[in-house]
Amino acid sequence: MTSIRQDLKEPFADLLLSVADDKFILGHRNSDWTGLAPMLEEDIAFSSLAQDEIAHAKALYELIGGLLGRSADELAFGRALEGYRCATIVELPDEFDWATAICRQLLCNRFDALRLARLARSTHKPLADLASRLAAEQRIHVEHADSWIVRLGAGTEDSRRRMQRALDALAPEAPMLFEPVDGQERLESAGLYPLAATDMFQEWSESIAAVTGKAGLRLTIQPPAAQTNGGRHGRHSKHLAELLDEMCEVYRLEPNAAW
């Protein structure tokens, strides 16, 4: 199936925007580490992974653009703040604290991996194909974060303390990744975003706990509230507003310019 029922178009576009925006904003945040990561090898690796996120976002924006009749650039740079569907956790500046950057990678990448696995089973064939490709690459990101978490969590007293502090600060923010877009249940029952066999939140929190446990870190994580009104509904932190003002500065000068 490649055509979308009219009444499902908007929720479907919202869902895909939430995936693309998470990747786009996280990739942008992580790209700021170029030249600053704790060691040269990691600097190159982390920059490369940030580029992956942006490449994934681009592929998704192109897919959504096809559905909505808009260009990928327009979706990436031409929306108002409330048009973005990313979760707050990707918007936060990491203050160039490596523990924060890496803990965020753990929480977001493992969520993304599960979400892509669901999308890979979508009845919308072009999405399923794209999501399987992205999921295969996503594994690289998951492994990368795991390695650092375990290494630093089980490193010295100093490194463990920093990791614990970063994890404690981010853990309350992470469950909002699960905030559903409007109409998500209809997408689930239509098979566009098929439910996984198990509870996604449980699967996610257990997989995080397995890594933090290995790293000797404490983890307290609560399921998201039943009623939420956050990033998936266009409500964002001031950090995203600042980020977009700067990122979209050039685009806004001449939105129709051909590059």
Binding site: Q51, D52, A55, H56, A59, R133, L134, A136, E137, R139
Partner: peptide
């Protein structure tokens, strides 16, 4: 996956 599957 080593070489990326998406166009880069």
């Amino acid at each position: 996956v080593i070489w990326r599957l998406t166009d880069q």
